[in-house]
Design a protein around this nucleic acid. Structure first.
Length: 470
DNA sequence: CAAACATTTCA
DNA sequence: GAAATGTTT
């Protein structure tokens, strides 16, 4: 067995419960941690601006933590396969380990890299770290993947196996000579114009910050999760999504925090939260088995859907992105997104329904905006979420389900607290008053007029769906 | 008879 | 999930 192993970090920015790192440390005397910046691999879906902001700080955090343990992180830029081959030559490493990702383009790249490195006689292994179950496990009749969430979720519960996290290494030994590294600033991940104030206020990036978030949620939040998770005014969700996306926190760690034995958590709140983790896994498997999913509707009949044309909708799209649609709950959500790089899930559904149904703008436009602005932007989750609301996904909402933003506010923001937080122009107005706010009062307060009539635009969406049914 | 609540329909 | 329709108070 060779002395030195490369641990290739990708989106697993943690030392605790990191299977690739744990394996390297157990079987080799020295460990060389590497991150290779290779945004090209995802083509049109290279990380957006908010994601890159998070990535910058995630790398800084990981580098610091690895330094503390004695194995400095090497940063490289370029095609991952070339850089790994170069590093193997430079260092004489005998092994390369990493944790698996599931975006089809990444899978394809990694498969090639694995066989190349094996061809050079290296010990190469990848590990499951980002999911509880692989996308090729839990198949119907052992061959076909699930296309409907509920049976998938039942199956996951039935096939549950106790999870167990891997220990965090206290000490690591780096290579005797550390190879060249580019600097973090060279990667130019931060925006040229600093718009990240709101993100900085809202998010603390890093492994320990993620674990604090998790602990806090488990101590105070998860018990009431089923009642509170739909309440943007109460911040009833976990806020773990970016930490899970970047692997500061693993789903195994989440399960163990909820249920130390690693068995399926009992209790309404904890089980409800694991169900949301199952949605995350379901979205990942849908993308894994359908490489076109980010751009193409899963239901074929939607290829002919009469969306408005780009030149027709361009202005309305921009109004939506800026949070100036004149629909309070929609504008509140879009402003939260712009300011904090995040939006409450209930509100994501509301603004997505509004864009695709009331504005009749293709879901891909919404997906792209979210991709650029969310710190938790995840190709599987984002794609699945948009296809679900648009009605064209695998297990989508029925096409006639058009959210009424006013009724949604009645149910989920009854005191308009969330609306007031993001739309200060509307201060002092309750939901009843907001519903009959006339143009003169809107103008006086500097709040935009209604972009569309909710009733008429709803009917237009239903008529559009009529055109493709069959 | 209006209001509150429950059920059905929408493909 | 919303709106229309039906049922109860």
């Amino acid at each position: 067995m060779t002395d030195l192993a490369i641990v290739w970090f990708r989106r697993d920015f943690r030392l605790a419960d990191n299977p690739a790192l744990d394996h390297a440390r157990k079987h080799h005397q020295r460990v060389l941690p590497v991150y290779i910046h290779d945004p090209e691999v995802l083509g049109n879906w290279a990380p957006g601006a908010a994601s890159r902001w998070w990535l910058h700080h995630a790398l800084a955090d990981l580098a610091e933590r690895l330094d503390d343990r004695g194995a400095p992180l090497v940063l490289r830029e370029g095609a991952a396969g070339d850089e790994l081959a170069r590093l193997v030559e430079e260092t004489g490493a005998g092994a390369v380990y990493w944790n698996r990702l599931y975006e089809p383009a990444i899978v394809e790249r990694d498969t090639t890299i694995k066989s190349d490195l094996k061809g050079r006689g290296l010990d190469v292994e990848s590990f499951r770290a980002a999911l509880l179950f692989e996308p090729w496990e839990l198949l119907r009749d052992g061959e076909r993947f699930y296309k409907v969430f509920t049976p998938y979720w039942k199956r996951m519960q039935a096939d549950w196996r106790a999870v167990s996290s891997r220990p965090e290494p206290r000490e690591l030994t780096g290579p005797s000579e550390v190879p060249d590294s580019v600097s973090l600033d060279d990667l130019a991940l931060l925006p040229d114009i600093d718009w990240a104030d709101g993100l900085r206020d809202r998010w603390e990036v890093g492994e320990l910050a993620g674990r604090r978030r998790l602990d806090h949620f488990v101590d105070d939040g998860v018990a009431d999760y089923e009642n509170e998770r739909d309440r943007p005014d109460h911040r009833g969700t976990s806020s773990l999504s970016p930490y899970l996306h970047f692997g500061h926190v693993s789903p195994v760690q989440v399960v163990e925090a909820l249920e130390p034995s690693g068995e399926l958590p009992g209790g309404k709140g904890p089980l409800g939260f694991v169900r949301e983790l199952a949605w995350r896994e379901f979205s990942t498997l849908l993308l894994f088995h359908n490489p076109d999913l980010p751009d193409t509707p899963m239901q074929e009949k939607f290829a002919d859907f009469p969306w408005r044309t780009r030149e027709d909708y361009a202005d309305d799209l921009e109004t939506w992105t800026r949070g100036r649609t004149g629909v309070p709950i929609v504008d509140a959500g879009m402003r939260e997104l712009w300011h904090e790089g995040w939006m409450h899930n209930r509100v994501r559904m509301i603004v997505a329904s509004y864009l695709t149904k009331n504005l009749l703008i293709p879901w891909q436009e919404g997906a792209k905006w979210f991709w650029d602005t969310l710190v938790d932007a995840d190709l599987g989750n984002n794609t699945q979420g948009w296809q679900w609301t648009a009605g064209c996904g695998a297990d989508a909402a029925p096409y006639f389900r058009v959210f009424n933003p006013e009724l949604q506010a009645d149910k989920f923001d009854p005191d308009a607290a969330y609306i007031h937080r993001w739309c200060p122009e509307l201060e002092g107005l309750d939901l009843k008053q907001l519903k009959k706010l006339d143009d003169a009062e809107r103008r006086r307060r500097g709040y935009p007029p209604m972009q569309v009539d909710l009733k008429a635009s709803r009917q237009r969406a239903l008529d559009a769906y009529q055109a493709i049914k069959g």
